[in-house]
């Protein structure tokens, strides 16, 4: 595509083009990396088996953290998205500020703000019996991630709701349905199908972003990896964790593609 017709002609004639040489060399480098990591693991099977068990526990924590945050975020995102689309100025403005803050600042800064920042108000939270929430790093991460993904999911949902044709709402009204019924039975189901792909991306972003929880001492996959590395200084622990993250993300991505195909099969012509 990016070659002129001339170089295409040459590429067919030669077996070893520059591109082929470069490609083979780069593939060789990837294979070398994979082989050296595999050799290290096989040569010390017992140790890495132990690491792997620990990391699996960490991955469980990661999935738990991400799963619950996504659910809470989904619940929060609906009123946020509606407020963003509202005709009244005040809710629209407040929802806009909320979304802008959470999308405009780094997740890690938000996490520090809640975990370390709210620690300064210990007496206040103790009197309202909420100190258990802000004392525990896991709950703090859960809170921040939920609020963060709520902002992103609200934007996804808002865009999706706005892209459902107006005729759908009008048809509902012509049939005498109540506004609530129109929203939940007609607009929302169609919006969710449009939002399916960005939702998948958001889940992947959350799985990756959840590694930040390890900095406030949550022992998720990244946290277990850092703990193991700080004891052993074994670099392969990071490669093992990388492999596990890759498996999680790639599996989810592929499952999501299948899911999308399945759910939109009535739209294919």
């Amino acid at each position: 595509m990016n070659h002129s017709a001339h170089s295409t002609y040459i590429a067919r004639d030669k077996i070893f083009t520059a591109a082929r040489l470069l490609g083979v060399f780069l593939l060789f480098l990837w294979a070398l990396l994979a082989a050296s990591a595999a050799y290290a693991v096989v040569s010390d099977y017992a140790t890495y088996g132990k690491y792997f068990a620990t990391f699996l526990r960490g991955a469980g924590t990661t999935l738990l953290l991400v799963g619950i945050s996504l659910l809470i975020g989904a619940v929060l995102s609906l009123p946020l998205a509606l407020a963003r689309n509202s005709n009244t100025l005040l809710p629209r403005f407040l929802a806009y500020c909320y979304v802008y803050f959470f999308r405009g600042t780094p997740l890690i800064a938000q996490t520090f703000l809640v975990y370390y920042g709210f620690g300064g108000f210990r007496e206040f939270f103790s009197t309202v019996h909420l100190w258990w929430l802000f004392r525990d790093p896991f709950y703090c991460a859960l809170l921040v991630f939920s609020l963060n993904t709520a902002a992103y999911q609200a934007e996804i949902l808002r865009g999706a709701i706005a892209s459902v044709p107006r005729g759908q709402t009008e048809a509902g009204r012509a049939m005498g349905l109540s506004p609530l019924m129109i929203f939940f039975k007609i607009t929302l189901p169609q919006a969710l199908i449009i939002a399916l792909r960005p939702y998948g991306n958001e889940i992947i972003i959350m799985i990756k972003g959840s590694a930040i929880a390890s900095i406030i001492t949550v022992f998720d996959l990244m946290g277990e990896t850092r703990r193991t590395f700080s004891r052993t200084f074994d670099y392969n622990t990071y490669l093992l964790a990388a492999l596990m993250y890759l498996v999680m993300v790639e599996t989810l991505r592929r499952v999501w593609v299948k899911l999308e195909q399945r759910l939109t099969r009535h739209l294919l012509r």
């Binding site: 593939l27 990071y238 990388a242």
Partner: peptide, 24 residues
Amino acid sequence: SQDATLRAAANIYTTVFRGLPELL
């Protein structure tokens, strides 16, 4: 690229680095 090996190497690169957490 028209070369399959180069395409494969590049695709591995993007898959790996888009799938890993930035922190990792």
